[in-house]
Amino acid sequence: MKGADRSKLAARLAHDVGKYVARAARNMPPRGATPAMVAMLATDLYSLAGGRRASAVLAELAGPFGEGDERLATARSLLEEADRLEDRLRAAEPAAVERGRAIALEVQSLVLDFARMVASR
């Protein structure tokens, strides 16, 4: 992949996943989230624009970068864990909501860090 194509793809990854995955997580309290906050967290993790899971969007956009980057590998693994939490999170089980929130924040950090690294080269 050419440098310009890498930069564009990384920018899209930062936008489509990095920006939206933590839209609720960034603002909700660690405990005592309202139903509306939990619903938005579920949307961010399981129904991004186009109705796709964050894990699927990440897999598509990160795929061309290969398996070598540890940040992207960790982000993939975390979003797979989030997928396994879906039923419990949607049911607003506190431990699942808290773990989903933490995953969203961590994935955002990893993806934005990766995109900045690509843009700086």
Partner: peptide, 13 residues
């Protein structure tokens, strides 16, 4: 464009 700001994430505060 004058008064323009940006944040990287949806940080309400």
């Amino acid at each position: 464009y004058g008064s323009v700001a940006a944040v990287a994430s949806f940080d309400a505060r």
